[in-house]
Design a binder for these strands. Sequence first.
DNA 1: CGAATTGTTGACGGAATCTGTCACCATTAT
DNA 2: ATAATGGTGACAGATTCCGTCAACAATTCG
Lengths: 345, 345
Amino acid sequence: MPKSKRLLELMMTVNRKRRFKVQELADEFGVSKRTILRDLQELSELGVPLYSEPGPHGGYQVVRERVLPPIAFTEGEAVSIFFAVDALRHYVSLPFESESSSALDKFYRHLPGDVRDRIDAMKNRVDIVTPRRRREAPCLAVLLNAAIDGRVLRIEYESAEAAAEAAVGGAIEGATEGKRGSKAKPGVRSIQPIGIYASNGLWYCPAYCFLREGVRVFRCDRIRSAEPDPAGTPPIDLEGRHLGNRKQYEPGHPSSGEGDGAAGKLRASLTPEGVRRCEPEPWLTEALSVLPDGGGMLEGRVPANDIGFYARFFAGLGREAAVLEPAELREAVRRELERALAHYS
Amino acid sequence: MPKSKRLLELMMTVNRKRRFKVQELADEFGVSKRTILRDLQELSELGVPLYSEPGPHGGYQVVRERVLPPIAFTEGEAVSIFFAVDALRHYVSLPFESESSSALDKFYRHLPGDVRDRIDAMKNRVDIVTPRRRREAPCLAVLLNAAIDGRVLRIEYESAEAAAEAAVGGAIEGATEGKRGSKAKPGVRSIQPIGIYASNGLWYCPAYCFLREGVRVFRCDRIRSAEPDPAGTPPIDLEGRHLGNRKQYEPGHPSSGEGDGAAGKLRASLTPEGVRRCEPEPWLTEALSVLPDGGGMLEGRVPANDIGFYARFFAGLGREAAVLEPAELREAVRRELERALAHYS
DNA sequence: CGAATTGTTGACGGAATCTGTCACCATTAT
DNA sequence: ATAATGGTGACAGATTCCGTCAACAATTCG
């Protein structure tokens, strides 16, 4: 094998096995130790960060970084990657060990000059924004690792009742009615994380909660601390639950058919502005139809358990929506609005 | 220079100048044409997509793709890049020519096996979601290019009055009061895009509007078509406006000090749930303070022009908020709630 | 300490490769 | 037709590469 090819292969091999011995590679490539040594030195000069230790149990290691083999990207592909990673800068916390900005820097610096020019031209012309939040979520990495390995954690959570029950992801917050109070004192509970996801700039963690004996969604910025469960609670079988099929385990909403509790038929009319306000809600997209005049209709089902949540939602839409049925919901919205009105008279 | 180094340098050179002749490179590297030819063939075998044409004005070209030189990424960096790009899959439309999924595929395939394993383990455990929208925005690339080159476009826009005025980005929708109607008929106007940005799953395009003689924000999915202005309207000087300083040109809100119109002092108290609902609003973060019991206060200024917008917003919060001053706002919220209540009696 | 393991360096000659030259062909624009 | 440009094959000489050997250094383990 010619040297140039061997070097490239060596680069990949070395990256695959992070630790190795010279003799090992020599056998693998069918060349002498001396040659491998020479090659390794060359790789080193080319930027592969190798570190070696003599002695028994010694050997070579790729130390902090790994070298990606050359990749052929379209100019457009490189640009999309750049802006995708750039979008992450809006997040205060990320679950990955290293700053994404360092990756971005490296990527940018290695791009051929003219692609760089193109990116510069686009830099202040394209953005994928996420609401910037002040609250940090320090435990993301711990939660993520626990989810991957299926471990049980003990967490301190800010709001024992209300938030735990209610935080079901951005828009659906409050889907399950809970007794709300001013409980901000952290409570301790054991959970087994299923995964983490960011929505609208906040991180959420669906997890099996051993306290409530069921799956709940936690807001990661409210998790004050997370550590391996000291009681050694054995992990339960999550039956293949993960983020991909998460929806199935969430409280019912109009598009998801039968939730818990009897479901009633929902009909509501919307002004054009009402349509605009409903479009962002992912749990409504299926129920929403837009009329030619810009207004719209919502048609679906509302589980009896969630009347409270729906009432608040429609009250929030104010005059941009009018619930036609079910009657209970109309009544609930009316009560909701009257309670609000009480603040202003 | 040893061949191995020459090959790597050649790879980069070839990527810098996308078109070149063999003789040119031979001179540059101080070797013979024959050698360069051999090298080029090798690069070709290594995956660099070269294309050549004989004859005068012929020469070599790097055809569709470019090869990035080897980059040293931390394992963590590679993982962040993966999930950043993966997050883009939620978008129906992107302004880049090529699918970001192809970039992701390539990236994934070239990763060393164990990093790939790590990603696989995380795949259903981490997500950065964006509300999936049904509406496509077909003109993104056109708008972006016009913004980069400072060109004037003629667009067909769905809602001549309401949406043009109101679409000021996700949360601030409706910040400027406009006469809302059921106008869904597309209107034609000339604009000069400043940039495009995605917020909450929808694409927006701030642009100078020659019809309204000022900067407006357009929702890209409502732009039915966009083409170079046939009237040849000369571009205006945007005075360095771009996405980075966009905020300065937006209608005032509590944190941005003096808007147009006299500003009144705003004070409102929030329940803990109210705090939760206000936290996501970027334009409120400065005004919001959280009390130890979980409740909160909003303190800032409200421009007289925006009373209508604020009234709607607080009406939407329902009983989770109580405006204390100014009195005009209290009165406006009350009227808002009463109008809503009229639908339910 | 001494033995074993592993990396590090230098030297050298033979083997393998790379390179330049030259000759000739193919394609295309002018 | 002519000139410009890429493409290929062959071959000898130049260069690099490679294996072997030898000596040394650092570390672990008994």
